[in-house]
Amino acid sequence: MSNERFTEPEVNENENITPSDELNNNVSVSSAPETDDSILDFDDDPLSATSVSKKSLVVFFLIDTSGSMKGKKMGELNTVMEELIPEIRRVGEADTDVKVAVLTFSTEVRWMYANPIPIEDFEWARLRASGVTSMGAAFKELNHRMSRNSFLNSPSLSFAPVIFLMTDGYPSDDYKEGLRELQTNSWYKFGLKAALGIGQEANDNILAEFTGSKDTVVHAYSGGQLAQMIKIIAVTSAQIGSKSMTLSDDTGQELGEENVFAAKQKLLGQQIQELVNTTGDGDDVPFDTGW
């Protein structure tokens, strides 16, 4: 016997009520159904055990948990991060699966979770501070994990990640070597990068080396500012990061990936600066004078 069927895309509005006769014909040519939301909603689907993934965005937080962060800085950071999660959750609701990965660095570097966690499942673990500032080691670890063979192994398509660095001091290891390694990583190259310096000791030049631009570096000198800045950067970068940008120049030509990245990073810098400039100084006491 011979039984052959070609399935070309069906255009069939009555997909549910028109039984296919593919098994009765030798050759059947059909075309793709128009998607009608009513046919997509059914409860008796054993296949729903495996969920549908949208395009994903991983937001990486690199957080300094060295001893100098102890006390009010760490306490404020923990509180603001707990408050921030629901805000980031809203960013991804529409059409992006947002995931979060948190890398802490002090004497050791450690991930909060073994893999990026979907934002709806993410729970902040209140961090403790101690030890030195191994920022270079953190850059190396990030480079190692930011790969299709590791953290970014989801089959679903990905936006370039958001990478957000927060620190209050000068690195105690060779951060330049770590950064050089990280700079070879394509996810880093095309990722949206921002950094927050906390208190007087944080060096904005080092942070600008990490982000590639001063526009995406901000500084918080008090608890109130810290909360504002973290929210501004995290929410803005997640919003821009999850935006599908089909750019075209004046001639109507499609622009390549590099141009999309450059436009996104520029937009992030502009928006961060605008938001920072319209934000008050905060009413609280600076970290370095008594917090």
């Binding site: 997909e15 549910n16 296919s20 593919e22 059914f42 993934s53």
Partner: peptide
Amino acid sequence: ETFKTVIKNNLSKRSHFGTEDD
């Protein structure tokens, strides 16, 4: 024969709510 409809619906759902590709 019964399951074909489920598969077709599921593929439509995956395209519709997933990456919108064929």
